[in-house]
């Protein structure tokens, strides 16, 4: 799978980055509501969100949080909701907005009796391209998703990962401005995941907005600019990766050669010192950090690296979800 495709034209790099292309205000969706408007399962509960052009936006949440429902509302696959949802300043589900959107659904099922090439051609034509234009884009797209060799085999003969790649290709064939990827790395091997990450980075470089819904938080952490964490149909947190992964207060320092009396050297500075060979970790505030560096340098010890420890996105996510669960149980 090749990540760089210099020939592939960007959707519209000239458009100003940062302009809002996706806007959601107090969005609420209840499934299975009775005729009298009572009962049912509230999948979205007052969601408000804005996504700017060119962003890679991550949507996180436990199962049943409402992530897929949010995407489906925006694509017009789910109707009769409360609140306002707009894409490209058009009502959600409007054909003109759908024309500018690419979508890779979770657990999608491509027509097994068609070849990969035929699938891409079919969906290209459904997206408004003519056959000739679809064929023109085909070779580059197959190269991009690494399916050139297998393009003429029937989809039913493909592995899960290959079907996922063709799924991505069909989502990109009409050069959309906004791409929804629902579990894009599902069933893909590590090499394939790296390639998909590269494709996303490439699309981002071209100004394409990407909306990723994934359970693989490592992927999200590596790819996304902004992340929304949803729980029980509500947005729990929204922010950049840095904002969502707070510092733990611990500093990890690697020395060229650690002295035997390190604990005595740093006595009175910070708490919870842990040592592992030449590496040690200790909780320090900013003043204590300066003093620590001064003492190490005064002893003539060389510092190889110094990291401010943060919570991983996964740790942060689990922490937030657990807090909500505890609150719910208490209620």
């Amino acid at each position: 799978m090749s990540a760089t495709t210099p020939e592939l034209e960007p959707a519209d790099t000239r458009r100003a980055r940062g302009a809002t292309i996706l806007q959601v205000r107090d969005l609420a969706k209840t499934y299975g509501r009775s005729f009298l408007g009572k009962g049912g399962f509230r999948a979205l509960d007052g969601v408000s969100l804005e996504v700017g052009r060119g962003q890679v936006f991550g949507l996180l949440g436990p199962n049943g949080a409402g992530k897929t429902t949010l995407i489906k509302v925006l694509l017009g696959l789910v109707g009769s909701y409360d609140g306002d949802a707009r894409l490209f300043d058009l009502p959600a589900g409007h054909p003109d907005s759908r024309r500018r959107v690419g979508y890779l659904p979770e657990a999608h099922r491509l027509p097994g009796y068609l070849t990969g090439r035929q699938v891409i051609r079919l969906f290209a034509m459904m997206s408004g391209l003519d056959g000739a234009e679809a064929d023109r884009r085909m070779a580059r797209l197959l190269e991009l998703v690494g399916m050139r060799e297998a393009a003429d085999r029937k989809v039913r003969e493909y592995s899960k990962g290959m079907q996922q790649r063709i799924g991505i290709a069909q989502a990109l064939v009409h050069e959309p401005e906004l791409v929804f990827l629902d579990e894009p790395t599902d069933g893909v091997d590590p090499v394939g995941r790296a390639s998909i990450r590269a494709i996303v980075q490439d699309l981002k470089a071209r100004g394409v907005t990407i909306f990723i819904n994934s359970h693989l938080l490592m992927e999200v952490e590596l790819i996304c600019d902004r992340v929304v964490i949803m729980v029980q149909g509500k947005i729990l947190r929204e922010g950049t990766i840095d904002e969502l992964t707070p510092r733990t207060g611990s500093v990890r320092i690697e020395l060229r050669a650690a002295p035997a009396d390190l604990e005595q050297l740093l006595a009175g500075l910070g708490t919870g010192l842990k040592r592992d060979g030449n590496v040690f970790e200790v909780k320090l505030n900013d003043v204590e950090l300066d003093q620590t560096i001064d003492r190490l340098r005064a002893r003539g010890l060389g510092i190889r690296s110094l990291d401010q420890r943060r919570l991983s996105l996964e740790e942060s996510f689990i922490d937030m979800v657990k807090k909500v669960a505890r609150r719910t149980v208490r209620r």
């Binding site: 489906k72 694509l75 017009g76 696959l77 054909p95 003109d96 759908r98 024309r99 959107v101 979508y103 659904p105 657990a107 999608h108 099922r109 491509l110 027509p111 969906f123 459904m126 997206s127 408004g128 799924g167 069909q170």
Partner: peptide, 15 residues
Amino acid sequence: LEKGAADLVFAKPVS
């Protein structure tokens, strides 16, 4: 209309 196939098809700009 089956799950998986419908999402792909009905998300396209075709009525």
